[in-house]
Nucleic acid binder design. Structure first.
Lengths: 266, 266
DNA sequence: AGTTATTATTGATCTAGAATAAGGGCTTGC
DNA sequence: GCAAGCCCTTATTCTAGATCAATAATAACT
């Protein structure tokens, strides 16, 4: 490896590595520490409390259960578990996946701080996938029946939760298009740009971050094999669009990446 | 063609063709005729009014706009139009699609009677795709701001609309898995079985129906080319699992079709 | 009814990405 | 500190499905 390692568990964080180690960075924004209210959470402008006033946030706060942090690999819930709650990521990251008949999993989504997990279970009352922590993470659990009750009292919350679900639907349909007509390189570029803007949303660098997931996870998510993902990474690096070192990634030419997926770069 | 044509526009419908011509059949269930209330609509047990009592249905009825029927090819809305309403299919069928940069469209969804269209626009306030009628169809338009207001008054309606959106999310994630890991034959089998159960839902034959969409539409939806879809149809027919004549299709061996996608056939 | 445009089928070739194989670097646990 | 697993990369071969091409069948238009 020709750049200094930033993987050391207890390494002292300098300016550079701080901007890269997303887990630590999200800790700053929204600690694993459970003694935090929605009102004081740094994510409250992106998460469920958005558009709520102080009184309303307090009411939401009452129904949120702040569970103890999850270790890497811990499950939030498993496929077919009874649906009880949706979850807001406070720090860390998660992946959802289903097990195919052949035993191997297929990743259906990744979740970063401020994002909502578990809405696939609302209709059938059972989760349709399993969801697992990708690193040391913390979560806010929102019992759905109480969220419904509160939404009924707070039109703002109802409106916003409709919007969150609508957003999930729009996002899923974009992925549908991605998978049904884009090449491996286009899918990968789109994936990286998607992560970029999601990190930007939580005030992290949009051009330098650590991938919380394996190449295999990315492949399963994008309908590609590990080998192809690895090859595309190498090839994008050779073209000078990205810089990769294991999980560390830098997007060195955003507009060229956008050009790959056919977005006008103005 | 070696089976009697059932495509004749004004042909007198006999027992057989009645069960096959879905457009006409759905007319019986829920006519193009606009003078019908939710209370009397044959779809009210599957559509928005589900779980509402008589008074509540009447309230919903007040906000529903029953537009004049759409001809084949008519647009319900276009990509980037301002989001104002969601729509319930009363009869006929629709497809949603986005135009890729290369000009060719990619189909993101098909909608049959009793299904809800347009939820992708809720978050961004603009429709993220265009939606077009595939045949002579009729629609109920539900202005979203009024639906929100009414949902606030009727907990049942709020609950049910959360469920409808949750169902859309779960369905989209299933398609994600389908596209990222299934073969052309598996995708096609899954698509046919999906249509089958959706027709069954509106009391039409689950084994004999007319495809409202072209092979090309199916291909765009499943991430395949027209040629591949056509070849898979031919091959499934040779294996005796289906019987195809142009748009007319019969699923002659449901359990074998299920076996293709790895579902235990009990 | 006859013409044109769209839709569907079938065959022949080509290619993007899968599968297979194999080695090396990290991480984890004893 | 060493061993056992992962995880990632790279090279080689192979194949499912795309692309190209041509024709036939249907539907739509005048």
């Amino acid at each position: 490896m020709n750049t200094p390692s930033i993987q050391g568990k207890e390494s002292v964080l300098d300016e550079l590595s701080l901007s890269v180690r997303n887990e630590s960075a999200t800790q700053k924004i929204c600690p694993h520490n459970s003694n935090i209210s929605c009102a004081s959470c740094r994510l409250n402008e992106l998460c469920l409390p958005i558009a709520l006033n102080k009184t309303e946030i307090h009411q939401l706060d009452e129904i949120v259960e702040r569970n103890r942090p999850l270790k890497k690999g811990d499950h939030l819930y498993r496929q077919n578990d009874e649906f009880r709650s949706v979850f807001a990521v406070r720090s860390g990251s998660f992946k959802s996946y289903v097990l195919s008949d052949t035993g191997q999993g297929r990743v259906t989504g990744f979740y970063l701080p401020g994002e909502i997990i578990g809405m696939d279970g609302i209709a059938s009352k059972h989760y349709s996938n399993s969801t697992q922590s990708l690193e040391h993470s913390s979560i806010c659990e929102i019992p759905f029946s109480q969220l419904e009750k509160l939404s009924h009292q707070l039109p703002n919350l109802q409106h916003h939760f409709f919007a969150i679900m609508g957003n999930e639907i729009a996002k899923d349909q974009q992925i549908h298009t991605l998978l049904s007509s884009y090449s491996a390189e286009e899918r990968t570029a789109s994936f990286l740009l998607g992560l970029s803007s999601r990190y930007a949303r939580v005030s992290l660098s949009p051009t330098r971050f650590l991938l919380p997931m394996t190449r295999s996870d990315i492949g399963e998510y994008l309908g590609l094999t590990v080998e192809t993902v690895s090859r595309i990474f190498t090839s994008l690096q050779k073209k000078g669009l990205i810089e990769v070192n294991n999980r560390e990634i830098e997007l060195t030419d955003l507009s060229a990446l956008r050009a790959i997926i056919g977005v006008d770069t103005c």
